[in-house]
Simulated assay, not measured.
Amino acid sequence: MKFVSIIMGSKSDYEIMQNCSETLDKFNVKYEMIISSAHRSPQRTKDYVKEAEAKGSVAFIAAAGMAAHLAGAIAAATTKPVIGVPMKGGAMDGMDAMLSTVQMPSGMPVATVALGKAGAVNAAYLAMQILAIFDKELAAKLTEDRIVKEKAVALDSKEIEVIL
C-alpha cells in the first residue's frame, strides 16, 4: 500500500496540519500522521521513517516551527521525497523555521512550501503530484481539481468584473 507520512514536531502543529490531512482525504489518499521531534525524540523519528518506508510510504511531509529541523532529520534518514512545512511561531514568527527548512546542504533535498495553512495544503498537493506520477486515476483527479479551480476564478470575476 502506498501512502504519505505526515510528521509534526509537536501537538501545537496539529491545527494547521489538519489542512494537509483534509486535503489528502478529499482525494482519498492514504496517510499516516504522527508527532515526533527531531530533537526531543530523535530515535522515534528515525525509527518511524524506516518503519513507514517498509510499509510503503512514498513521501514524507514534515512540519516544525522555530529552527527545529524535522525535515532535515527526515531527509538524512531516507531517500524518499521530503516536503517541509515551516510553522509560524516563536520569536521570529516562522522566519527561522522557513530558513532552516529551505537551507539544506547539497545532496539532501527538502522541498519547502509556504508557512502555515497554505503550506500544509500545498504539501499535500505536492505529495499527491509525486504519487500521481504512477497513479493515472489520481493524476486525473488532480487535473479535474485544477479545472474546477479555474472555473471558480472565472465565476468570481463575473460577479465583480468591469471590462470596457
Rank of each mutant, 00 (worst) to 15 (best):
K151P: 04
K46W: 00
L131R: 01
E144R: 08
V49Q: 11
A71T: 06
Q129F: 01
M95Y: 14
K88Q: 14
V153S: 09
D96K: 06
K55W: 07
E144S: 12
T143P: 02
A114M: 13
A120D: 03
K117Q: 14
S41R: 12
L142Y: 06
A140M: 10
K88H: 13
M92E: 09
G72W: 07
S41D: 11
S100R: 00
V29Y: 01
G116L: 11
A154L: 14
A127C: 09
A68N: 08
A124M: 08
A127T: 02
T112Y: 03
K80G: 02
A111M: 08
G89P: 08
N122Y: 10
P109H: 02
G119K: 11
I163C: 08
A118M: 14
D47H: 12
A140G: 11
E53H: 05
K151E: 11
I61D: 04
G119C: 13
S57A: 15
K149S: 14
A91Q: 11
I130E: 05
L155N: 12
L155G: 08
M108F: 14
M128T: 04
L99T: 01
I133D: 00
I83M: 07
I83K: 08
A68I: 06
R40I: 06
G119V: 10
V58A: 14
I130N: 02
A154C: 00
H69M: 09
K50S: 15
S157T: 13
E150Y: 06
A118E: 13
F27D: 03
A73P: 05
Y125S: 02
S57P: 05
Y31K: 05
K158E: 15
M87E: 11
T112S: 04
A68D: 00
V82G: 03
E161P: 00
T101E: 06
I74P: 06
V85D: 15
A111I: 08
D47N: 15
E144I: 07
K50C: 01
K136P: 03
T78E: 06
A38D: 07
A97F: 03
A132G: 10
I130C: 01
S100Q: 07
A38N: 07
A97K: 06
K30V: 07
G65Q: 05
E159C: 00
D96E: 09
P105F: 04
T79P: 05
I133G: 00
E159K: 15
E53S: 00
L142D: 05
Q103K: 07
V148Y: 01
D93F: 13
P86V: 10
E32K: 00
P86N: 05
D96W: 10
